[in-house]
Simulated assay, not measured.
Amino acid sequence: MTLTRRAEWLVLLLAAISLTGAALLGHYALTHHDHATTEVGVDMNGRPVQLDPGAELPPEQHRQQDAKPDGAGRFIVPSVGLDVPLGTMNEVAGSVVPPGFTAAYRITNLGTPTAPEEGTVYVAMHSLRRGAVGPGNYLFATETGTSNVAPGAIIDVSDTPYVVDRATTIPKSDLPNDTTIWSDIPGRLVVLTCLEKPDNTPAVDNFVITAHLAPPYNSAQQ
Rank of each mutant, 00 (worst) to 15 (best):
P98T: 06
L51E: 00
E56T: 09
E143C: 15
P151V: 05
F140A: 07
L128E: 00
P59Y: 08
G136F: 01
R129Y: 15
V80Q: 03
T37I: 12
V123H: 01
A36Y: 14
Q64T: 13
Y138I: 05
G41I: 10
P116Y: 04
I107P: 01
M89Y: 03
S127M: 08
T114E: 11
P116K: 02
L128G: 02
A103P: 07
P59C: 12
A36L: 13
A124D: 03
L57Q: 08
T146N: 12
A93S: 13
G54Q: 06
G46K: 10
L57E: 01
D83S: 09
P69S: 05
V84W: 01
L51A: 07
M125H: 05
T38C: 09
G54V: 11
E118P: 10
L25V: 12
T37E: 14
P113K: 05
S79A: 15
G134I: 04
A104C: 06
A104T: 01
L86H: 06
P85R: 10
N45G: 12
G131H: 04
A93L: 14
A55H: 00
A55M: 00
G54P: 06
P58I: 02
A153I: 13
E117S: 12
A67S: 12
E91N: 09
P135I: 03
A29V: 15
M89E: 02
I107M: 05
